[in-house]
């Protein structure tokens, strides 16, 4: 595994216990210039996870708590008259930051949701006719409660698609939970974390990820996965070309994290569940096994 990133994961693990795989996926997502959606019940550490990640990566962090009365201006920023009453000054919103935690994104109205999702896609904010670029890197971690919960505005498929990955946190293992219960307050531990990276290193890494080699045979494998999902009557809809790009980008990032120079089928298999989970609805399998049975059905080329 890549030495620096290994240090990142190790440091983060001192606070969030037993979530090594989630950390790895989050790094994948970041390095692939994607955004991450964490979906799980309240209280499993979603917010802490985002905090720790920001801290350990040494990035500028902002948290936006989504509520039903949140307005787009609360996210993007707004213009106010200057004291001389002749001009307006733009007050940037919390979105002008490197890591955004959009907490409980499905609590807000679709209008507020789209404001963030547009910013995610465009990586810039246009307000009062002026376009302002967002800082780089720009990484959104959105959390949401499972949509069956009361008072939630379920994100539609087209907006789910803006997230490169969706992962869950899961309950901690008994050992991790014991440590959690017996140990110090996580908030205090959080403050002790020292950042392991800086913006420049991260940008450098992202550039390297884009250079990861993809063999012809791996392209074949990837395409047969996409083709398999498009066979009628298996899935509600097959994977889109954008999903294909996402899968490849995530696999490249994974290969980079693993310290490889090229993408292997194992990389694709490692990221595929997180990438396709919110994009693919099987007609036959239960949601838990969709990705797994997809992987089992496609031969490695």
């Amino acid at each position: 595994m890549h030495a620096l990133l290994s240090a990142v994961v190790d440091t983060a693990e001192t606070v969030i216990l037993g979530k090594r795989r989630q950390l790895r996926m989050a790094l994948c997502c970041l390095l692939a210039r994607g955004h991450l959606l964490i979906e799980d019940v309240p209280g499993v550490g979603k917010t802490l996870f985002a905090h720790v990640l920001a801290q350990v990566l040494g990035l500028k962090f902002q948290r936006i708590q989504f509520t039903s009365d949140l307005m787009p201006a609360d996210i993007l920023g707004f213009s106010m008259p200057n004291s001389d009453q002749t001009s307006f000054r733009f007050h940037p919103g919390p979105v002008f930051s490197q890591i955004i935690l959009a907490d409980e994104i499905n609590r807000a109205t679709p209008k507020a949701q789209s404001a963030l999702l547009e910013a995610m896609e465009e990586r810039q904010v246009t307000a009062e006719g002026e376009t302002r670029p967002l800082p780089e890197p720009f990484f959104v971690i959105a959390t949401q409660n499972p949509s069956s919960h009361i008072g939630a505005f379920h994100l539609p498929e087209s907006q789910l698609d803006r997230f490169l990955m969706r992962i869950g946190m899961g309950y901690p293992s008994p050992e991790a939970e014991r440590t959690l219960l017996a140990g110090l307050d996580r908030r205090i531990l959080l403050k002790k974390i020292r950042s392991q990276l800086d913006t420049e290193t991260l940008e450098n890494m992202m550039a390297q990820v884009a250079q990861i080699h993809v063999a012809e045979s791996l392209m074949d494998y990837l395409q047969s996965i996409l083709a398999y999902t498009r066979i009628p009557n298996r899935y509600v809809t097959g994977l889109s070309p954008r999903a294909g790009l996402a899968l490849l980008a995530a696999a490249k990032a994974h290969a980079f994290i693993e310290g490889r120079k090229g993408v292997t089928p194992e990389d694709v298999q490692a990221v595929l569940p997180a990438v396709t989970d919110h994009r693919l609805v099987s007609r036959n399998d239960d949601p838990q096994n969709t990705a797994r049975s997809l992987l089992m059905a496609v031969a490695v080329a």
């Binding site: 996926m25 799980d40 969706r166 992962i167 899961g170 309950y171 569940p273 989970d277 990705a291």
Partner: peptide, 13 residues
């Protein structure tokens, strides 16, 4: 061998 495949992302673990 099935366990060699990554688990479902929402199941955590």
């Amino acid at each position: 061998t099935l366990e060699a495949l990554p688990p479902n992302p929402r199941r955590g673990g």
